[in-house]
């Protein structure tokens, strides 16, 4: 078994080098060898992940573990330069700002009865941030609850008003749409009746579906009353509406997932193999 693995590894290495050399021959410019190496590396990492479709294997595990490490460091670095250097340092110290090449902002927060200079005030997130890292030290790990409480409190405060306004009140108000669209009486309605996508009947029917669909969907989610009688029938309509919703979501999910595969295959065929333009 070990021998087979070694042979496979040797073949993979050989194909890698071969691909690198062949790719380098197709690229113009001073960095041809480096560019060819990078394209080949990206292609082999792509294939390593794809090899999972055959079965779990060492190449997949290698790629997966590499991704985890690289990804965590990526977020840390970008977070550090963009927010710590970009937002904290300019409010903290003139010397540090100069060292990092960002403008010093200084400033203060005026409470009326008390004025706090920014360099003092912005020690709060540093202290809370340090406390968050204490989570890695079991003895003082409880201190990490302070920044956690800050995060939870901010989230709760920010979300409460916004969700109430945009996802509750606005949605209810958007549901009350006119059921008689462009209404000029029954004569006009029947004379111009059609199933055209942009016709009057379809517009009216759509608004009716939206109104009843939302009401019935909400009834289905209301569990404090038994779903019997008229309430039960409305709940049943709600289930049907939700089923159509989930069907639509499934259709879009398929489309999304296929797109991702198309993206990777396009990379392999175009950037690596060069068989499509």
């Amino acid at each position: 078994m070990k021998r087979t693995s070694l042979i496979v590894f040797a073949v993979v290495c050989l194909i890698f080098v071969l691909s690198w050399v062949l790719k380098a021959g197709t690229i113009d410019g001073d960095n041809a060898i480096q560019d060819a190496f990078l394209v080949t590396l990206a292609s082999f990492l792509t294939l390593a992940i794809m090899s999972f479709m055959y079965k779990d294997n060492a190449y997949y595990k290698f790629a997966e573990h590499l991704f985890v490490g690289v990804s965590a460091a990526y977020w840390m670095c970008v977070g550090f330069w963009s927010t710590i250097v970009g937002n904290l340092v300019p409010r903290l110290s003139e010397g540090l700002s100069e060292a990092f090449g960002v403008p010093y902002l200084g400033g203060e927060l005026d409470f009326g009865f008390l004025t706090l200079p920014y360099p003092l005030l912005y020690f709060i997130p540093i202290i809370l941030g340090a406390f968050l890292l204490f989570r890695l030290v079991p003895k003082v790990g409880w201190l990490s609850r302070w920044p956690l409480a800050f995060i939870v409190g901010t989230f709760a405060g920010l979300n409460l008003v916004r969700y109430l306004r945009s996802d509750f009140m606005s949605q209810i108000s958007s549901t009350f749409v006119p059921l008689l669209v462009d209404w000029h009486g029954f004569g006009h309605f029947f004379a111009n009746f059609s199933l055209a996508a942009d016709g009057q009947f379809v517009a009216m029917f759509s608004n009716l579906v939206i109104f009843l669909g939302v009401v019935c969907g909400l009834i289905y989610f209301f569990f404090s009353k038994e779903h019997t009688g008229l309430f039960g029938k409305a709940s049943r309509v709600g289930i049907w509406i939700l089923m159509i919703t989930f069907g639509a979501s499934f259709g879009y999910t398929v489309m999304g997932r296929i797109s991702l595969l198309v993206g990777r295959l396009t990379f392999l065929f175009k950037d690596w193999l060069g068989i499509i333009s």
């Binding site: 920010l158 916004r162 969700y163 306004r165 945009s166 996802d167 606005s170 979501s249 879009y252 999910t253 489309m255 999304g256 997932r257 797109s259």
Partner: peptide, 20 residues
Amino acid sequence: WVLFVGDPTGVPIGAGVAAV
């Protein structure tokens, strides 16, 4: 964007999103 910027400020919001 809708919850925190579009609705409170009234600036029109458009989007291009993944199918999912």
